[in-house]
Design a binder for these strands. Structure first.
Length: 960
RNA sequence: GCAGGGGUAGCCAAGCCUGGCCAACGGCGCAAGGCUUAGGACCUUGUCCCGAAGGGGUCCGUGCGUUCAAAUCGCACCCCCUGCACCA
């Protein structure tokens, strides 16, 4: 069976690709262009990646079957150091890496070749296309394949950057970024691709405050520059040897470790001497901003590896400072050891500076008391600090001790005060990592100043506004992201777009020492698929991809004749590419994983808006969530999931496609679960068996109630699918086609359905509806029906509204409810039935019921109103209290009904005739005699007097 | 910290926008019966609690509230998860 599946898959893939139904050229149909965000070439992909890719192929197939000319191109993203780092590990014959390669099917003989990063890229390009995408039957236009390190692609990226510059969207300024002291720039992120340790570290911005002390500057590093108004003294660790550092004309005192980091951020720093901490104790220095003289005091909590190892003291808001001050004030030995005047020291009092809701004037003092912290060695000080800092930052306001900053929220004051001190020369910035970070090479990672870094200015107001406005017109899924992308675009700011170091990518056109960074060269690229085909087929050469060329084909600028002549390209070809762009662009859907929400998608959108004409701005974004492993996220580099070809072999491609489409909403993570795959495999088997069963029936000509029902359901299903697919809801499609349909067919067969024409119709529609998700099996079944074209290029079924028969479906529901009522009676009583008698509602009750229904429809139904009408009726009156009771009950029920429910009751069918027709079915179901009577029939046997319970839609039941 | 997502029966997972066919789609698991040489698959029925007559009770993280009516709307709380920029 497994082999048979694989054979079917291969057979149809060959036929599709032979005929080229996957290849797209402009014609007179409406177009639909869709891509998935191309994967980074950093190793083998896993079953999780196929989720999104499968959505794209299924959507593309659906649109193709709906008359669209569909373009679905693919490519890969090789920029960065993924391939470099893999090649390096292979070269080192790293055991784990080799195991990983072999486990995924790499041959021993390839290994030598993969020592070169470029070969790694080419190797994986082949794996992705042939082992994954073609293996999954994607109808992608392979001719357009491109990769970010192809020379033609790079010409395109250089053009893109020229355009960004021309639009004023490239800016240059200093930047502070993590870099290994040996290898250059590295990425600090939890995946630790570049690192040995410290992936969780964050970049911290310290404000360096300069305290003049004789001819020196004591330099404290702080995270809270807004607290300078609360300074009471200065802290130095008496046991630490500090260094004197020449910084331009100034001599700074800082710790040695901080110098080691700072030298990467400030030019020309130089150690000229050392100075012991204890030498500084007791000296006076001038505090920045407040220009007050304060005293230098000893404190052991000053850690030379944190900040500069020197600390300004704000005991009102810093628990450390408060405890240290208190300890010193109470410690005679210490005071005398350092020759400090106890009276002067004890005079020092915290100065309240920030008002925080829910706190007194001195939050540090308060929290220390509340937590019962006594010593500066208490580890809970860290927590205390966090609490005060958090509340202060979010809820605090500067108080009247803070000069012109009084009344200002802390968040705002912090920035303004920092900037003011920087501009007066009293402060500078210093960046550090929150924890130790070690490069893969073993050397430390520091924050390094890049003085001339280039940025793309995504903070540009006009660009942001235009992008936000445009995003509102886009089809963005899920709907939550449609809303959220507005915030993301606001929050998106200038982004470093080039880097130096060991890195694959495109040279920055304005300065060759830079390489364009990985996010920045993968934003506008969908449009490049319209050119890559011509390069791949050889009719365009890389050197012909000049600025004028792209200006013309993408921007419609310039004169084609002179450009054609100048670059030596056939004029017709040039015009044709221009027409291709005009036809295919804009992109209709860009689908990508949720990691793209705050990075790739906004950049993708803003580059389109920034560079292209409005008519080429993208039309849609689709975000999909992940397949996770049992232990969390499946990782490309760390493995943990079944290799794709193995899974395809075991379960079958269509099974996997159905799994992706149906297992959950695309907007939720799903755990990879082989048992679920087995179940989907069974599901497909079952469908094949059901189809065999249908085809083996000796169909008849007569068209009966149940055939009418089946036809109606069939159309209802098509309608539900089409409704769902307006939002590309593949799960809805899968649910209707692979689950609900089969349930309908089961019921149809159970009811004895067997109409030849109808069965053919059902098969025709059903199989076509399978084509987007399980195309191989759909083709095979389609061929078995004797069809000659591809199901993949047939039309997706349309709803025929007249065939939807609400009354017929309703009658069938009526029957199902009787079956379920009888089952319930049998279950509760434990009886084995010999004879079941059904009594349909008497006429007079139907009359009351339909009167009530009319009133309810007009929203005029009331209990007394209905009763009055009933009791006025000559005939009904004769039923006396029974009639008024029934009127009341009916009114009560109908008053609670929604409009949909009322609509159901309106469906007209003759219950008595219908049940008589269905009696044979019920006889089979319950293996006993079934009799149907009208409750009006005085001759009907009714030993337990049940018939009086009969009401419309609810026949009385008597089991014996 | 910034910005988001989510808590639904034994499990997975729809529904929530647009309140009422919701004891809550569907699937898995489990149980009984059928089919089958057997297993798997398949078919039927059941699977919150009570019930020897189709009924009743309770239920969608917790607590309030709006409404004739709340899984669905509002407020508050608790708990989980995700992304966050030179990583793609």
């Amino acid at each position: 069976m497994i082999n048979k599946l694989a054979d079917i898959e291969r057979k149809w893939q060959e036929r599709w690709y032979d005929v080229g139904i996957n290849e797209a050229e402009p014609d007179n149909r409406p177009k639909f262009m869709i891509i998935f965000a191309y994967p980074g070439v950093t190793g083998y992909l896993h079953v999780g990646h196929l989720r999104g890719y499968t959505y794209v192929d299924a959507i593309a197939r659906y649109m193709r079957m709906n008359g669209y000319n569909v373009l679905f191109p693919v490519g890969t993203h090789a920029t960065g150091n993924g391939a470099i780092s893999l090649a390096r590990r292979i070269k080192a014959r790293d055991r784990a890496t080799l195991d990983y390669m072999f486990a995924n099917g790499c041959l021993e003989s390839e290994i030598k070749n993969l020592e070169d990063p470029i070969n790694v890229v080419n190797f994986f390009n082949d794996v992705y296309v042939n082992q994954y995408w073609k293996r999954f039957g994607f109808l992608a236009d392979w001719r357009r394949f491109t990769c970010t390190i192809y020379p033609d692609y790079q010409k395109f990226i250089q053009w893109q950057f020229r355009k960004l510059k021309a639009k004023g969207l490239l800016i240059q300024k200093p930047y502070y970024a993590p870099a290994c002291i040996e290898c250059g720039p590295v990425a600090v992120d939890p995946s630790e691709t570049d690192l040995q340790k410290g992936g969780r570290a964050e970049i911290i911005e310290y404000t360096l405050l300069k305290f003049r002390c004789e001819n020196l500057f004591l330099v404290a590093a702080t995270l809270r520059p807004e607290t300078v108004f609360g300074q009471t003294n200065f802290w130095v660790n008496p046991d630490v040897e500090y260094v004197k550092v020449k910084n331009n004309d100034e001599i700074w005192v800082i710790s040695r470790p901080s110098f080691e980091k700072m030298k990467y951020q400030k030019e020309g720093l130089e150690i000229i001497d050392t100075i012991a901490g204890k030498e500084l104790v007791g000296k006076k220095c001038i505090a920045p901003m407040i220009h007050k003289e304060i005293i230098v005091l000893p404190a052991t909590f000053c850690d030379p590896s944190v900040g500069t190892g020197l600390v300004m003291s704000v005991p009102s808001d810093a628990p450390d400072d408060w405890i240290a001050l208190k300890e010193l004030q109470e410690n005679e030995t210490m005071l005398s050891k350092y020759n400090l005047d106890p009276a002067e020291i004890r005079k020092i009092k915290p100065i309240p500076i920030i008002d925080i809701d829910g706190w007194g004037p001195l939050p540090a003092v308060e929290i220390v008391e509340k937590m019962g912290i006594e010593r500066s060695s208490d580890t809970r000080l860290e927590e205390a600090k966090k609490i005060v800092y958090r509340d202060g930052f979010h809820k605090g306001k500067m108080n009247s001790n803070c000069g012109k900053y009084a009344g200002m929220p802390v968040q705002k004051a912090k920035e303004l005060m920092r900037d003011e001190m920087i501009s007066t020369g009293e402060a500078e910035l210093f960046y550090d990592l929150s924890e130790e970070v070690i490069c893969r090479c073993g050397k430390p990672v520091v924050i390094k100043k890049v003085p001339d870094q280039w940025f793309i200015d995504y903070g540009n107001k006009a660009l942001t506004e235009a992008s936000k406005r445009h995003a509102k017109t886009m089809h963005i899924l899920p709907p939550e992201y449609y809303i959220n992308i507005q915030n993301v675009l606001d929050w998106f700011r200038e982004r470093a777009c080039v880097r130096q170091g060991n890195w694959l990518g495109t040279r920055f056109p304005f300065d060759e020492k830079w390489i364009i960074e990985a996010i920045s060269d993968s934003t506008l690229y969908p449009i490049y698929y319209l050119v890559s085909k011509y390069v791949n087929e050889g009719s365009l050469k890389t050197e012909q991809l000049t600025e004028e060329f792209f200006d013309y084909v993408f921007l419609d600028c310039g004169d084609p004749e002179s450009i054609a002549k100048k670059i030596g390209v056939d004029l017709e070809l040039l015009k044709r590419i221009r027409e291709d762009v005009e036809y295919w662009y804009p992109l209709d859907i860009n689908l990508g994983g949720k990691e793209h929400m705050t990075v790739h998608f906004p950049a993708f959108l803003m580059n389109h808006v920034g560079i292209l004409q409005e008519k080429y701005w993208p039309r849609g974004i689709f975000v999909n969530w992940y397949i996770t492993g049992k232990l969390g996220k499946i990782s490309k580099s760390k493995g943990g999931a079944e290799p794709i070809p193995g899974a395809a072999e075991r379960f079958g491609v269509d099974t996997m496609r159905l799994y992706y489409a149906h297992i959950a909403s695309p907007f939720a993570d799903v755990e990879w679960d082989e048992e679920a795959l087995e179940n989907y495999k069974n599901r497909i088997d079952r469908i094949i068996k059901t189809i065999d069963e249908l085809r083996s029936l000796n169909g008849m000509e007569e068209f009966r109630h149940i055939d009418r029902w089946m036809l109606s359901r069939l159309n209802s299903r098509i309608r539900a699918v089409r409704e769902g697919m307006k939002d590309f809801d593949l799960r809805q499609l899968a649910n209707e086609v692979y689950f609900e349909m089969i349930n309908d067919i089961r019921w149809y067969l159970r009811r004895g359905g067997n109409n030849k024409k109808l069965i053919n119709r059902v098969l025709d529609v059903w199989i076509r509806m399978m084509a987007p998700i399980t195309p191989h099996i759909a083709e095979e079944l389609w061929e078995n029906l004797g069809k000659e074209c591809f199901v993949s290029t047939s039309n997706f079924p349309n709803v025929i509204e007249e065939e939807i028969r609400f009354d017929v479906e309703e009658a069938e529901e009526f029957l199902k409810s009787i079956v379920s009522d009888i089952n319930e009676i049998l279950n509760v009583t434990g009886m084995i039935p010999n004879h079941i008698r059904l009594y349909t509602s008497p006429k007079w009750k139907m009359q009351v019921f339909s009167t009530a229904l009319d009133l309810a429809k007009r929203k005029e139904l009331t209990i007394p109103g209905l009763t009055k009408i009933v009791m006025k009726d000559q005939l009904l009156k004769t039923y006396g209290k029974e009639a008024s009771d029934f009127a009341r009950k009916t009114a009560e029920v109908l008053l609670k009904c929604s409009n949909d429910e009322l609509r159901r009751f309106e469906a007209q069918f003759d219950e008595f005739d219908f049940l008589n027709e269905a009696a044979q079915f019920l006889r089979n179901e319950f293996a006993c005699e079934i009799s149907v009577y009208s409750a009006d029939d005085p001759k009907a046997p009714d030993p337990q007097n049940k018939a009086k319970l009969a009401i419309p839609r609810r026949p009385a039941i008597y089991v014996e």
